[in-house]
């Protein structure tokens, strides 16, 4: 199964890259932006045909390596 996960910075963690992207968008004329937050996206093809089990495996990966839970949250967004 292919499992997709996104990792985002927690709300109270400063995201300087997001800030610069926001400023650049503003300079380009995109004036309707409140905030930009940058994150990470993973597509993991696991050798598991049961969607629930596949999700569990990727959640375990997120907890142990892909995300640092002090500053980041993760979310499984798609299993196919």
């Amino acid at each position: 199964m292919k499992v997709s996960a996104i990792i985002t910075l927690k709300k109270d963690v400063l995201d300087p890259q997001g800030k610069v992207i926001h400023q650049t968008l503003d300079g380009m004329g995109f004036k309707d932006v409140n905030e930009v937050r940058q994150g990470k996206y993973f597509e993991i093809d696991v050798k598991e045909n049961d969607p629930q089990k596949a999700q569990k495996i990727v959640e375990d990966m997120c907890n142990k390596l892909l995300a640092n839970l002090v500053i980041e949250n993760y979310k499984i967004i798609e299993i196919q």
């Binding site: 400063l14 300087p16 890259q17 640092n68 002090v70 500053i71």
Partner: peptide
């Protein structure tokens, strides 16, 4: 910090 031996994390420098 990544191995959990000391608390906290190290983020990208504030002014990039």
């Amino acid at each position: 910090v990544e191995s959990g031996l000391v608390p906290g994390v190290l983020l990208r420098n504030k002014y990039l």
